[in-house]
Measured scan of single mutants.
Amino acid sequence: LKTAGVNTTDKEMEVLHLRNVSFEDAGEYTCLAGNSIGLSHHSAWLTVLEALEERPAVMTSPLYLEIIIYCTGAFLISCMVGSVIVYKMKSGTKKSDFHSQMAVHKLAKSIPLRRQVTVSADSSASMNSGVLLVRPSRLSSSGTPMLAGVSEYELPEDPRWELPRDRLVLGKPLGEGCFGQVVLAEAIGLDKDKPNRVTKVAVKMLKSDATEKDLSDLISEMEMMKMIGKHKNIINLLGACTQDGPLYVIVEYASKGNLREYLQARRPPGLEYCYNPSHNPEEQLSSKDLVSCAYQVARGMEYLASKKCIHRDLAARNVLVTEDNVMKIADFGLARDIHHIDYYKKTTNGRLPVKWMAPEALFDRIYTHQSDVWSFGVLLWEIFTLGGSPYPGVPVEELFKLLKEGHRMDKPSNCTNELYMMMRDCWHAVPSQRPTFKQLVEDLDRIVALTSNQEYLDLSMPLDQYSPSFPDTRSSTCSSGEDSVFSHEPLPEEPCLPRHPAQLANGGLKRR
């Protein structure tokens, strides 16, 4: 031991701790050491302190810390799992109470259905409401065949629209698609105040090879029609059969078919879209009749726009005509997947739907009320060519290029400059510069009032120099000039209409 001194630092001082000593042992101690050379000694003081209470040693090893962490984590996880189980049990009790009230408590799974309603004014964004509309049932219905791709499903009954099956008599087919079909039928007692009145209706139903998605689409269309409500110039929902059998959606019946066929059937002799010497046209149409058709469609679209509904496929083929020549817009409630459109795929009647699409819908897939206005301009062109085919002879690839360059279709022969300028306004490259349906209704209403009933179509000018029955994407082998976009001569082996020498072909294109 070194004694503290003047020249001794703290580091040089050493402390020796002795245990089991008493206060009597306190004092100075000297350590002597010697050898043959000499003797040396050092002294140190022993200080006795009071004994401290002994405390248990605390484990601070890493293993002990890990044990604490794992135990704490396990406890927290157990609490979370327990909370989830309690929540599930409570929510399951509430669901079972709800389904027992709906009398569908025996169901095993559900079809996820979404009601898609486009509400954005400047995009294709949609509001999806995840309302459960249908659930599968283990119960089988008697007297009705089961669908191959869709098991029997039981829908919640809506008393406002439900019609008993025994009050619906199915008739002949009116048309069909890939998985759905429409048949003519007679409904008894659609009007609650007149329970014995028989009404001719159209009934939409699924085919035998339909899938769950097809069922989902049909129900979504029905729900959309319920929500949009009734208007004179749209196909209205009349009722539905949802209980004890396949789903039947009952809508208004339009006896004169779609507008395109309606116009073609009323072309003057010699100007029909397909040469037929025995062709006997229906009643002749006046200019006022054509303007009235456009006015009614505009009114229907104005109503749909007021309900925040974007059609996305407005064309003469999707406008139906009733016995009283009332125009009714159809298929506005269809669920369309705008992100998976095949631009080169034709519709069932051979038309390319892209020829009715606005550039922003075609290139950027942006659907708005103003893109519907563009389609309405093409529909106007169809009306005043009596069912002509837009951009005849123009392949899709060429159409993309022409639209980007600002080309537009030429004025039809039997169309006034004012109406043609309306078409051109609908085809404005900037969507915000196109008229609204409200403005179109006002303009067409004024034109109808000024147009005489006696103004019949000028038969001295050809209505349509093209054969719409030909595929639109076909290139002409005998077109006049180098560019078949601006002219389209008859093919030698097929009868077509004579070309008027002083008139540019109706399907020609102009640059805006």
Rank of each mutant, 00 (worst) to 15 (best):
388 G>S: 08
258 N>D: 12
256 K>T: 06
330 A>E: 02
409 M>T: 00
399 L>I: 12
283 E>V: 10
403 L>P: 02
172 K>I: 14
231 H>L: 06
325 N>S: 10
399 L>H: 14
382 E>K: 06
453 N>T: 08
382 E>Q: 03
210 A>V: 06
334 L>I: 02
173 P>T: 11
373 V>L: 04
427 W>R: 00
365 R>Q: 13
218 L>R: 07
458 D>Y: 07
375 S>T: 05
458 D>V: 07
439 Q>K: 13
370 Q>E: 04
446 R>P: 10
339 H>N: 10
428 H>R: 10
303 Y>D: 04
342 D>N: 15
482 E>K: 15
322 T>S: 13
465 Q>L: 06
234 I>T: 03
397 E>A: 13
461 M>V: 07
411 K>M: 07
467 S>F: 04
337 D>A: 14
390 P>Q: 02
202 A>S: 12
316 A>D: 02
323 E>V: 13
192 K>Q: 11
399 L>R: 01
337 D>Y: 15
314 L>M: 06
213 K>I: 04
413 S>I: 09
304 L>Q: 01
381 W>S: 02
183 V>E: 14
462 P>S: 07
259 L>P: 01
476 S>P: 14
239 G>E: 15
191 D>Y: 05
241 C>R: 15
474 R>G: 09
221 E>G: 03
276 N>H: 07
474 R>W: 05
260 R>Q: 01
217 D>N: 06
389 S>A: 06
286 S>F: 09
424 R>P: 00
439 Q>E: 11
197 R>G: 06
170 L>V: 06
263 L>R: 01
245 G>S: 11
268 P>T: 03
415 C>F: 00
236 N>H: 15
207 K>M: 12
248 Y>F: 10
325 N>Y: 09
198 V>G: 09
481 G>W: 13
438 K>T: 11
423 M>L: 00
353 P>R: 02
369 H>P: 10
383 I>T: 11
430 V>G: 10
238 L>R: 11
343 Y>D: 00
223 E>K: 12
337 D>V: 15
326 V>G: 03
259 L>V: 06
175 G>R: 06
482 E>Q: 13
334 L>R: 01
300 G>D: 01
292 S>T: 11
307 K>T: 13
342 D>Y: 12
210 A>P: 08
366 I>N: 05
311 H>L: 00
180 G>W: 02
483 D>A: 15
364 D>E: 04
169 V>I: 13
233 N>Y: 15
419 L>M: 11
286 S>T: 11
284 Q>L: 06
175 G>V: 02
330 A>G: 08
375 S>P: 05
470 F>Y: 12
482 E>D: 04
279 H>L: 11
323 E>K: 07
219 I>N: 13
286 S>A: 08
378 V>L: 01
484 S>F: 15
452 S>C: 09
222 M>R: 14
231 H>Q: 10
453 N>S: 10
186 E>V: 04
203 V>A: 07
437 F>C: 01
389 S>C: 03
283 E>D: 07
364 D>V: 12
230 K>N: 06
181 Q>H: 09
338 I>V: 09
413 S>G: 07
470 F>L: 10
368 T>I: 03
397 E>D: 13
345 K>E: 03
429 A>P: 12
221 E>A: 03
266 R>G: 12
446 R>G: 07
236 N>D: 15
433 Q>K: 11
246 P>A: 08
195 P>H: 03
360 E>V: 05
470 F>V: 09
186 E>Q: 13
241 C>S: 09
245 G>C: 03
234 I>N: 13
304 L>M: 15
270 G>V: 11
295 Y>H: 08
282 E>A: 11
453 N>K: 11
171 G>C: 09
331 D>A: 00
312 R>G: 00
285 L>R: 10
253 Y>F: 14
268 P>A: 03
362 L>S: 01
297 V>E: 01
222 M>V: 14
425 D>H: 12
407 H>P: 00
260 R>P: 00
362 L>I: 08
336 R>P: 02
480 S>P: 15
261 E>D: 06
458 D>G: 11
196 N>K: 10
483 D>N: 15
419 L>R: 00
347 T>A: 12
460 S>C: 09
412 P>A: 00
328 K>M: 15
366 I>T: 10
469 S>N: 09
317 R>T: 00
200 K>N: 06
342 D>A: 14
452 S>A: 10
359 P>L: 07
190 L>V: 03
416 T>A: 12
340 H>P: 02
194 K>N: 14
223 E>Q: 10
422 M>T: 09
191 D>A: 08
345 K>Q: 07
438 K>Q: 11
376 F>V: 05
428 H>D: 04
293 C>R: 04
445 D>N: 12
386 L>R: 09
236 N>T: 15
171 G>V: 14
400 F>V: 14
460 S>Y: 07
258 N>S: 07
267 R>W: 00
181 Q>E: 05
201 V>L: 10
344 Y>S: 02
385 T>A: 04
208 S>P: 08
477 T>K: 14
310 I>K: 00
404 K>Q: 07
329 I>V: 11
442 E>K: 13
452 S>Y: 10
461 M>K: 06
353 P>H: 03
338 I>N: 01
209 D>V: 07
350 G>R: 03
168 L>R: 05
168 L>Q: 13
201 V>M: 10
410 D>E: 09
345 K>T: 03
438 K>N: 08
349 N>D: 05
432 S>A: 05
329 I>T: 02
414 N>D: 10
311 H>R: 01
410 D>N: 04
272 E>D: 07
306 S>T: 09
272 E>Q: 05
221 E>V: 02
403 L>Q: 02
232 K>R: 13
404 K>M: 08
317 R>G: 00
188 I>N: 13
311 H>N: 01
224 M>V: 15
264 Q>R: 09
310 I>R: 00
349 N>H: 12
482 E>V: 12
217 D>Y: 08
235 I>F: 01
369 H>D: 10
265 A>D: 07
366 I>L: 04
215 L>V: 02
313 D>V: 01
380 L>V: 05
281 P>L: 10
287 S>P: 15
485 V>G: 10
256 K>N: 15
320 L>P: 01
351 R>Q: 15
178 C>Y: 07
297 V>L: 05
242 T>M: 04
224 M>L: 15
311 H>Q: 00
371 S>N: 15
468 P>S: 06
278 S>R: 09
290 L>Q: 08
342 D>G: 15
437 F>L: 01
361 A>S: 13
341 I>L: 12
362 L>F: 03
200 K>E: 12
226 K>T: 14
197 R>L: 05
261 E>A: 10
169 V>D: 06
464 D>E: 08
318 N>Y: 02
298 A>D: 01
262 Y>C: 04
273 Y>F: 05
466 Y>N: 08
347 T>I: 14
321 V>G: 02
289 D>E: 12
328 K>E: 07
258 N>I: 00
347 T>S: 08
180 G>E: 03
305 A>D: 09
243 Q>R: 12
449 A>S: 05
473 T>P: 10
269 P>T: 14
224 M>T: 11
471 P>S: 04
406 G>D: 03
363 F>V: 05
471 P>T: 09
166 D>G: 07
447 I>F: 13
256 K>Q: 05
301 M>R: 00
466 Y>H: 08
395 P>R: 10
236 N>I: 15
295 Y>S: 14
294 A>G: 05
229 G>W: 07
187 A>S: 15
459 L>R: 12
428 H>Y: 07
327 M>R: 03
464 D>H: 11
246 P>S: 11
204 K>M: 01
271 L>Q: 12
177 G>D: 02
402 L>M: 04
261 E>V: 09
174 L>P: 14
293 C>S: 05
236 N>K: 15
251 V>G: 08
352 L>V: 02
374 W>C: 05
277 P>T: 08
289 D>H: 10
306 S>F: 11
378 V>G: 01
406 G>V: 00
449 A>D: 09
203 V>E: 01
308 K>M: 06
461 M>R: 12
244 D>N: 11
345 K>N: 02
235 I>S: 10
223 E>A: 13
384 F>L: 12
476 S>T: 06
473 T>S: 09
225 M>K: 02
459 L>M: 12
474 R>L: 11
444 L>Q: 00
186 E>G: 02
318 N>I: 00
279 H>Q: 08
244 D>H: 14
340 H>R: 05
435 P>H: 00
280 N>D: 08
313 D>G: 02
220 S>P: 04
449 A>V: 08
327 M>I: 11
291 V>A: 12
465 Q>H: 07
330 A>T: 02
344 Y>N: 01
466 Y>D: 07
341 I>T: 14
235 I>V: 12
460 S>F: 05
